[in-house]
Write a protein that binds this DNA or RNA. Structure first.
Lengths: 179, 179
DNA sequence: GGTCGTCTCGCCGTTTTCGGACGCCGCCGC
DNA sequence: GCGGCGGCGTCCGAAAACGGCGAGACGACC
């Protein structure tokens, strides 16, 4: 396996850890990511992929970006990659249910397995597993914590519509959830 | 799945249970076959496949037959069928090692898997898994018990060579092994 | 110093076990 | 009735365990 490098990126959700191979981004992890990822590597000052990823994520958090262009290499089983691929089809500000995703990959009864694969998504934010919720609308879970999921959804919702009433309120939501 | 029928056949190795579908023979099992097969069905008085199988097995045990002609339908995974197919290429009185079989199916490192597939051979005797031994010559295992394997090998060895000194001695070998 | 045995460990398909980022259904409170 | 909550059933994939092995590494004997 090719050597991995990493870098920390500060964000509104705390310091994110970006991990890359020579060619592609393989991981984006929250401070206390669950389950704890195995990926690790040495710190890299200059790195083509990490540089792009860091810039685009900064833009995303600043509200100036809705999609990403860096090369991705999400590593997992065939099933997991199928699920993660389906994630990529969910547009900015949209939402899907776990059942939706199961149908999308042609395995409509694999609802729970989809949930598990979602939980193993190594590229949080870029592969938008935060846009997947329960059929009833419940957030149900997130590797970076439900508060982070809520923040991301609010962030996108605020930008997805044409707003006339000032700034997005999602700064507050982070506190709301952590009861 | 098509309905299965069965019949018991007495043999020098005890009563064998023959199982068939409408079209083909799917199982030949020893009295205390290990692992216990799932196949079961109603007793059949007249049945085209079972009739042929019973006759040919009788001839085999009597030393008047070296190959079989009935239609076979060994049910298993793709890998298992590949192994069982390779069994069919081992001639009467010959022997192969598990490593030989692994090479034969083009997967030389799958030695243990070959052993496992061998153990699941549903058509004992007809698909001659008894002709497969360890590299060192050890018998290593048999669904009908090592004594049965030993008996079959001796039975074939005795008939495979042109003998001038009377009858085959394999009746005794059954006792030898069960120490 | 061979050489035979025993032990260990790598291999690989199958089987079993495990656990969950679901979702239905029923109960309870209103 | 209606909505919300909680328990349980179900259904998957993932991971670990399991052999009908075999090659190599040691040790203990001639």
């Amino acid at each position: 396996m090719t050597r991995l490098v990493q870098r920390s990126l500060s964000s509104p959700l705390g310091p994110l850890r970006l991990v890359a191979s020579d060619l592609a981004l393989v991981g984006i992890y929250f401070p206390d990511h669950h389950p704890t990822p195995a990926h690790a590597g040495e710190e890299a000052a200059r790195h083509p992929v990490l540089d792009v990823a860091a810039r685009e994520l900064d833009e995303y958090f600043a509200g100036r970006r809705r999609g990403f262009t860096m090369v991705l290499d999400p590593r997992g089983t065939a099933f997991q990659r199928a699920v993660w691929q389906a994630l990529a089809d969910i547009g900015f500000g949209e939402q899907r249910t776990y059942a939706d995703l199961a149908r999308a990959i042609g395995n409509p009864r694999a609802v729970r397995a989809v949930g598990a694969a979602n939980g193993r998504n190594p590229l949080s934010i870029v592969l938008p597993c935060h846009r997947v919720v329960g059929t009833g609308g419940a957030l149900t879970g997130y590797a970076g914590g439900l508060a982070a999921k809520q923040w991301l959804l609010a962030h996108e919702a605020a930008l997805a519509v044409i707003r006339s009433d000032g700034d997005a309120p999602h700064g507050d939501l982070l506190r709301q959830v952590s009861t």
